[in-house]
Amino acid sequence: NQESVVAAVLIPINTALTVGMMTTRVVSPTGAPAEDIPRLISMQVNQVVPMGTTLMPDMVKGYAP
């Protein structure tokens, strides 16, 4: 099972992602793949992402898996 990126903390809208904001988990439906964490760092979210929420590609500005 592939791990997806999950918010480790509450991420406010327009916040640039840091490694400490993200964790990985096997979830369904799958979100952004765990191996993309290095690409996701410094990208901004376009909505509030509550802690424990799977990071879906459409939540991150300019990100395409």
Rank of each mutant, 00 (worst) to 15 (best):
P29T: 01
V45K: 00
I11S: 02
E3L: 14
Q2K: 13
D58W: 15
D58P: 01
E3H: 12
G20S: 14
M21Q: 04
V19I: 14
P57K: 01
L10H: 15
S28G: 02
A34C: 09
G52D: 05
P29A: 02
N1R: 13
I11K: 00
T53Y: 12
V48F: 09
M43V: 04
A64F: 15
M22Y: 01
T18G: 04
Q2W: 12
V9P: 01
A7Y: 07
N46R: 07
A32Q: 01
S4I: 07
A34N: 01
T18Y: 08
V60T: 03
V60M: 04
V49R: 01
E35T: 13
P12S: 09
T18S: 11
N14R: 02
P38Y: 11
A32G: 05
T15K: 02
R39G: 05
K61H: 12
T54Q: 03
S42Q: 08
L40M: 03
P33D: 03
A8Q: 06
Q47C: 15
G52F: 08
L40V: 02
P38W: 13
V5F: 05
I13R: 13
N1W: 13
E3I: 10
Q44C: 15
P57L: 08
G52K: 02
G62I: 02
V60D: 04
L10K: 08
A64K: 15
M51R: 14
P12R: 09
M22C: 08
L40E: 03
V49L: 06
M43C: 13
K61D: 14
T54E: 04
P33A: 05
P29E: 03
V49Q: 00
V49Y: 03
M21T: 04
T24R: 13
A7F: 08
G52S: 03
N46M: 09
G31E: 01
M21L: 01
T24G: 07
T23N: 08
P12N: 10
S28E: 11
T23G: 07
T15E: 04
V19N: 10
M51Y: 08
T30F: 14
V27M: 00
R39F: 11
T15S: 10
M56Q: 10
M21E: 06
G62Q: 05
Q44W: 09
V6S: 01
V45F: 04
M21S: 06
T24Y: 08
M59N: 04
P50E: 11
M21A: 05
P29L: 05
R39K: 12
N14H: 14
T54I: 06
I37F: 03
G20H: 14
Q2V: 13
M56D: 04
Q2C: 12
A32Y: 14
L40S: 00
A32K: 01
V27L: 01
N46W: 09
E3S: 12
V27G: 00
P50A: 10
V26N: 11
I41E: 03
A32F: 15
L55S: 02
T23V: 11
P33C: 07
N1P: 14
P33H: 05
V45W: 07
P57T: 04
A8V: 08
G62R: 00
V26I: 14
A64Y: 15
D36W: 08
N1T: 13
N14F: 11
G20W: 14
G62A: 07
Q47W: 09
Q44E: 14
M51I: 10
V6M: 02
A7V: 07
N1H: 13
V5E: 01
S42R: 09
S28A: 11
P57F: 08
T30K: 15
I13F: 10
D36T: 01
A16L: 12
V60Y: 02
V6I: 14
I37T: 02
T54Y: 06
A7T: 05
V45H: 02
M51D: 06
M43Y: 03
T24E: 07
I37W: 04
N14P: 00
V45P: 01
I13P: 10
V5N: 02
I37Y: 00
M22H: 06
V49H: 03
E3Y: 13
Q2I: 14
V48L: 13
I37L: 11
S42T: 11
L10M: 13
M59D: 03
V26G: 03
V9I: 11
M59G: 05
M43F: 06
M56H: 06
A8I: 08
V45C: 04
V6P: 01
A34V: 07
V48Q: 13
G31L: 02
L17S: 03
A16T: 11
V6K: 02
R25S: 10
V48N: 15
P65R: 08
P33L: 09
P50G: 06
S42P: 01
S28M: 13
P57N: 01
S42N: 14
M21C: 08
M59V: 03
P38I: 09
D58K: 12
A34M: 05
G31V: 02
P65G: 10
A8F: 09
V45D: 02
G20Y: 13
P12G: 08
P57E: 05
A16Q: 12
M43A: 03
T53N: 08
Y63W: 06
L55P: 03
R25Y: 08
Y63L: 03
V19Q: 12
T30D: 09
A8G: 04
G31F: 05
K61E: 12
S28L: 12
A34K: 10
Q47E: 05
T54H: 04
P57S: 07
G52C: 08
S4M: 04
P57C: 09
V45M: 05
P12A: 08
I13V: 13
V19C: 14
L40K: 00
L40R: 00
I11D: 01
L17W: 05
L17V: 05
K61I: 15
G62W: 08
